[in-house]
Design a protein around this nucleic acid. Structure first.
Lengths: 267, 267
DNA sequence: AAGTGGTCTAGACCACCGT
DNA sequence: CGGTGGTCTAGACCACTTG
């Protein structure tokens, strides 16, 4: 049984106190917490101290703060689920793209945000390593995927500059950037590897996604390779953690039939 | 080019200002930022406001704060990588466990922290749904995996109480809980599905992992099933996001030979 | 002992939301 | 308009680390 804080900083005690009230149903999902002045009076502490406690709950995902309205207990989140076929390494079939089905994501669009040649940040060096090229030989395409108009994910695509046709940097919108790149360079792409990790949103990503710095992001990285096995494309996508879940189904692989016309985002 | 904040709250402007100095190498990785009083004087703002800016950078993972010492620019993190064989759904081969190789994780141990019968929280209801049983019929085993003595991941294992032998709740330590469960119930387990997502550490997990609430966690969920396909075991593991990355290799599947005696954590 | 970050207070003003 | 949360200040004391 975890200790119910009778020691330590006040704001942590208050946070645990409030969390317990949420857990026991005293503040059920959707309900409003007492206002900051009310809690301040109740705990006999300064409003800033109470705010720090509430801030802990918000960072932990337990409450949602609505400015000018109040602080509310969050309901369980519903994630979009993305099926990853553990067995198929092919991205294209018969020249047509077969993006993975995404369930629970509506009205998705992928828009190019920025195109840079020969960048040199941490992720650029990562890409260079994976593609076995110097950063100066790479072009990076950054995109933003929105769903129903709201930011859903940011992605970076790295590919050798010399493979890209001259006009490529002009294309500003596409339904699936991986497929667009594959078509532009005229190479049939297959998966080499993919990886999943979690990071805190840095300040730049936070701004583009309209979330706070430090919000958990699900990171999907991967390399696509040519038929001869040479790595060609490195992708690094950051998705607001609450919005997605990648699923590997090992038994009976079948497309779920809910969400007809499921969005294809290149996942 | 992202806007260099000339508007908005002071603490965000300061945060962007400092982030830019980090990006441009004015404050290189490992270096110390000016102290809070120094920054306070430099920006001409209250120390609390400066602290709020630094707090943004810390949440974004850009700096590390060491109490009594200073605030330092973080170096790139090194993650343990866990290979996921996309093609094999079998957990046991010839009655021996074949856990997945983990690279970069040293001195791992899994210890049972708590055993509960018939719980009823959000994740318990999730488990009940996946196993198609009421929560009252389930036993949950919580474990903590440490690496070199430091917390690495917390896990929950849910299984039908009636399948477990009487003495199972006594076992306090095992090298691999999934295998221990499989042996205890005498069923050969295979993967049904696995999923990856990212969440903010809630207050309970944060305490067990020794991190702050809201820290990004990589969540691996999964169901293991019996040979006849019935779901038997539901696992939900939360790993400090910075510490792990799951990798699916689609080409030449081979065990990497670095990290000999690689730890087996049931991944 | 000196310097660092961590917590807390009291009070003020602002921005946003609903009625 | 009144109530909510968001930002900022000035000042105080504490806990921790290093020399």
């Amino acid at each position: 049984m975890p200790t119910p804080r009778n020691t330590g900083p006040l704001y942590l005690r208050f946070a645990h106190d409030l969390q317990e009230r949420i857990d026991t149903g005293q503040y059920p999902p959707g309900s409003r917490l007492p206002s900051e002045p009310e809690l301040s009076a109740h705990f006999g502490a300064n409003r800033l101290t109470v705010r720090q406690a509430i801030s802990e709950l918000e960072r932990a995902g337990a409450v949602e703060i609505r400015r000018g309205v109040g602080t509310f207990v969050r309901r369980p989140v519903v994630r979009a689920t993305i099926d990853v076929d553990p067995n198929s390494a092919r991205l294209d079939v018969d020249g047509r793209s077969t993006p993975l089905p995404v369930h629970g994501l509506k009205g998705a669009e992928e828009r190019t945000v920025e195109v840079a040649v020969g960048p040199d940040a941490a992720s650029d060096r990562q890409a260079a390593e994976h593609l076995r090229l110097p950063t100066s030989a790479l072009t990076r395409v950054d995109t933003l995927i929105t769903a129903s108009g709201r930011p859903w994910a940011v992605s970076g695509y790295w590919v050798a500059t010399r493979l890209l046709p001259a006009g490529f940097t002009e294309s500003r919108e596409s339904r699936n950037t991986t497929v667009a790149v594959a078509e532009a360079i005229g190479i049939d792409l297959a998966y080499d590897w993919r990886s999943f990790s979690a990071i805190a949103a840095d300040i730049a990503d936070a701004r583009r996604l309209g979330i706070g710095a430090g919000t958990p992001l699900l990171v999907r990285e991967g390399v696509n390779c040519a038929p001869d096995g040479r790595p060609v494309l490195y992708v690094r996508r950051r998705i607001h953690g609450e919005n997605a879940s990648y699923v590997l189904r090992y038994r009976t692989w079948r497309r779920t039939d809910q969400e007809p016309g499921g969005t294809d985002t290149g996942d």
